[in-house]
Amino acid sequence: MEPTFHQFSELFAQLGLASDEAGIRSFIGQHAPLPDDVELAEAPFWTPAQSALLRDELLDDADWAEVVDQLNLALRKPA
């Protein structure tokens, strides 16, 4: 079975966030930069369900891990 690679917009949709380009840019601009000592899933702007989804995707689902890593990197850069 081939691995599935998800797009950034799909992750935002999974998180219940605006998944169009403007919505993604706005979210990142509002929440970046995330301090280095804060794990992505533990950031204060996530709901408990969003935190759980991010944590689960990183630990359990290699299909989503790459795009979750991309989100992590995007939120570490200064807006």
Rank of each mutant, 00 (worst) to 15 (best):
E2R: 13
P3T: 11
P3R: 14
T4R: 14
F5V: 15
F5S: 12
H6Q: 07
H6C: 06
F8Q: 15
S9Q: 13
L11W: 08
A13M: 07
Q14L: 14
L15F: 05
L15Q: 11
G16C: 10
G16K: 10
G16R: 11
L17C: 11
L17Y: 11
A18F: 06
A18L: 12
S19K: 05
S19H: 15
S19D: 15
D20V: 08
E21R: 15
E21Y: 08
A22C: 07
G23K: 11
R25A: 14
R25D: 15
S26P: 09
S26D: 15
F27A: 06
F27D: 12
I28A: 04
I28D: 12
G29V: 14
Q30G: 09
Q30T: 15
Q30V: 12
Q30N: 12
Q30P: 09
H31M: 14
A32M: 09
P33M: 05
P33Q: 07
L34N: 04
P35Q: 09
D37C: 06
A41Y: 11
A41F: 07
A41L: 00
A43D: 02
P44E: 01
F45P: 03
W46R: 00
T47E: 06
P48A: 00
Q50F: 02
Q50N: 05
Q50M: 00
S51E: 04
L53I: 01
L54W: 00
L54E: 00
R55H: 09
D56L: 02
D56R: 04
L59Q: 07
D60H: 10
D61N: 15
W64K: 00
A65M: 06
A65I: 00
E66Q: 13
E66C: 06
E66L: 13
V67W: 02
D69R: 13
Q70L: 09
L71H: 05
L71T: 01
L71N: 05
L71A: 02
N72M: 06
N72W: 09
N72T: 07
A74I: 07
K77D: 13
K77Q: 14
K77F: 12
P78M: 01
